[in-house]
Design a binder for these strands. Structure first.
Lengths: 249, 249
DNA sequence: CGCGACCTTGAGCACTGTCAACGCGGGTGG
DNA sequence: CCACCCGCGTTGACAGTGCTCAAGGTCGCG
């Protein structure tokens, strides 16, 4: 765990010199089907010109739901969670966000979610009104952000499907696959997944109780599909059965 | 029900002469907090120039998941459902869409959902590549679509919260409130909600079984909160308790 | 107006949520 | 450097709720 945090922290000290990155899958067809950089070098420089770089310690609230939305953020490195606290006291995590993701979703000028860091994080902070001005000058930039928003929309729909599953083991497997995709850039052994957040965070994301998450973990272990080593790492033992579970049944 | 369909159908025969509309709540602050028209008259004319108007009968598939995404659609009138059929045979409805909503969500050039009409529908069909060209000429148009996408993103997150609720009655109440908001433009008595889709559609949207939806309806009736009249209309009897249930607990 | 699609209801079961108690481990202060 | 401490994770028992399977009943479209 210590090593893990250190790696993320080191990563955070070397921001891309070219400015912020936005990753996503285009909605129109491209040569490569997978995720691509949505911004040109010129656009990144343009954004870098109006961006402030913030370094934030882990477990820090960046903003709260309902606050005046003055900034849009792009993650340089690290991981954050976007969540809402419901009247009942329950907390629903809408999304985990990683490097090259954007956050700052607002409605009528106010943030709709609260955002808290999970690891140490480096973010590019963009003034919302300055960004709107920039859109006016560069129409292609607006389209890039449209791509990103659409990408997030697809992710949100997948999340809904995930949460509607009845079996806890299936939901957990889907989360693990999500994490595997988003930590692929880290220098980890093949089949090893980094889990930066707590079990409680996972439960709030999956719409399960904390205990059920733990029990589902035990089930995956007992069936020889996944091995949980420590609190923040997992290893895929049986890729076939894992994918079978994680498939959006 | 007959009357209902007729009304929707009549509505469909009188498209706005000014071209397609896009409704949503802005992410930045405006005078009015609620939903606004996102397009200027000039933009609507611009879109109308590249739009084909289609009239589609009810229960018609507009496109299937995985098909090449060549169009973006904007609903003039009527209601559609966007869904995915899962390997298990289950169907998850990602969204119900109404007048002034857009659909045609794609990923790497292919539609991610299937879309089917629920009522007779009038849609504006926009060629995707023509639309992209239009974005290049009018940067503000891209921002308008960005607003719409962000609006849909917030809706998707609310949907996730909805589906993560345990109590069926609460989920059903939330759906009814959604329907109330989206059929408000119809000339219905106050407190009367139009339900264009089947119980099965509702179940697939709420992530419940068909039977549970029916049972939840009976519970709401027994508690004197809602009265279901026929298969496609509901009346709110106790607004206070209804809102209490529908609140995102 | 008739038939098919849709809705309704019941019984039994599987799964998760809740409550409660305990264990583990890293971080901190002496 | 070590020991304490608190957050986090783990496990068990029990009750509640929705899902499945199965069999009627009814609405409303053509």
């Amino acid at each position: 765990m210590l090593e893990n945090l250190k790696r993320l922290a080191d990563h955070a000290t070397t921001p891309s010199p070219r400015g912020p990155s936005l990753r996503g899958v285009m909605f129109h067809a491209t040569d490569q089907g997978g995720a691509v950089e949505l911004l040109t070098d010129a656009q990144r420089q343009q954004l870098a010109a109006i961006a402030k770089i913030d370094r934030v310690a882990r477990r820090t609230t960046i903003y709260r739901e309902g606050a005046i939305a003055e900034n849009l953020f792009i993650i340089g490195s690290g991981a954050v969670k976007a969540f809402r606290d419901l009247p009942s006291g329950k907390r629903r995590i809408a999304a985990f966000l990683f490097a090259e993701d954007a956050f700052g979703l607002s409605e009528a000028g106010r943030y709709v979610n609260s955002v808290q860091t999970i690891t140490p994080v480096m973010v590019y902070r963009l003034d919302a009104s300055l960004l709107r001005e920039t859109f006016k000058r560069d129409s292609a930039l607006g389209v890039s952000f449209l791509c990103k928003a659409v990408h997030e929309l697809r992710a949100a729909q997948r999340h809904t499907i995930l949460v509607s599953r009845r079996q806890a083991t299936g939901r957990l497997a889907m989360l693990l696959r999500l994490l595997e995709q988003n930590t692929a850039h880290l220098d980890l052994q093949k089949g090893v997944i980094e889990i930066p957040m707590t079990r409680s965070d996972i439960a709030n994301y999956l719409g399960l109780s904390l205990e059920t998450v733990v029990r589902a973990s035990r089930v995956l272990e007992r069936q020889g599909i996944v091995d949980f080593v420590g609190r923040h790492h997992a290893r895929i033992l049986n890729r076939h059965r894992f994918e079978q579970l994680a498939a959006a049944f």
